[in-house]
């Protein structure tokens, strides 16, 4: 028997913006047999908003770093000493991309031989990041269907009033889907804090037609393994 799944926005983010960690469980969930995933109609706007906030921002930081490199005196061949100087002088710890750029300089950059190659790799990194989110969104769109809420549920709204803002409306949308589908409907989330923990799961299941909450958040123990 197939079942419907309403996805909260975190599934989109995990699927489209991480290379592996969140992407993997989200992909596994969305492609399992018998599941019909649904998503809010505002999904494109949510994607664009988060693309600006995540991948475009990282890209800007990387390109800015490359431009600082072009303006600097570093040119020609690079060795460990030059790379150390670049890391120290041109990487800004306040920059959002700092953590993975640091990793890049530590683990990958030692294999490059010139500043020219270094800059090209960094540009490639910026382009890969943008390309990843665009490709993944295309893939995501093929896996999910949009659901437009038809009904109004003042009693459910009232019962869920302790859940703040957007998360409450995700529950209402999922409830609307459940009311209109003959099969069981579950709500998939990457946000256990607001949807599962501290009695939230019971509150939602008790007051809506949602049959189950699926927690796809990466637990600390699962991370980076």
């Amino acid at each position: 028997m197939s079942r419907s799944a309403f996805l909260d926005k975190g599934i989109l983010l995990g699927f489209c913006f991480t290379v592996d960690t969140h992407h993997r469980p989200c992909l596994k969930y969305l492609t399992q047999e018998g599941i019909e995933p649904y998503i809010t109609e505002e999904i494109d706007a949510a994607f664009e908003r988060n693309k600006s906030r995540l991948s475009t921002r990282y890209q800007e930081h990387i390109l800015n770093h490359v431009s600082q490199l072009t303006k600097s005196n570093f040119e020609g061949e690079v060795g460990p000493m030059e790379l150390r100087k670049i890391r120290k002088g041109l990487l800004d710890p306040g920059n959002n991309a700092f953590h993975f750029l640091e990793y890049y300089y530590r683990e990958i950059a030692p294999n490059v031989t010139s500043v020219y190659e270094l800059k090209n790799q960094l540009r490639d990194l910026a382009r890969d990041i943008e390309q990843l989110s665009l490709d993944r969104k295309e893939e995501f769109d093929e896996l999910v269907q949009e659901w437009e809420r038809g009904g109004e549920y003042p009693d459910v709204e009232k019962a869920l009033s302790e859940i703040e803002g957007e998360d409450m409306w995700v529950c209402i949308d999922a409830h609307d889907l459940a009311v209109n589908k003959e099969n069981e409907t579950e709500l998939a989330t990457t946000d256990p804090k607001d949807m599962v923990d501290n009695g939230r799961e019971d509150l939602i299941l008790k007051n809506t037609s949602i049959s189950k909450i699926i927690d796809l958040a990466i637990k600390p123990a699962d991370r980076w393994t």
């Binding site: 995540l54 953590h99 640091e102 990793y103 490639d124 890969d128 990843l132």
Partner: peptide, 19 residues
């Protein structure tokens, strides 16, 4: 290009942090 894949762990940590 594969450069992102070579730093994927650190990249994903950043994204999860910012998400």
């Amino acid at each position: 290009s594969g450069v992102l894949n070579s730093v994927s762990e650190a990249f994903d940590e950043t994204v999860v942090e910012d998400m």
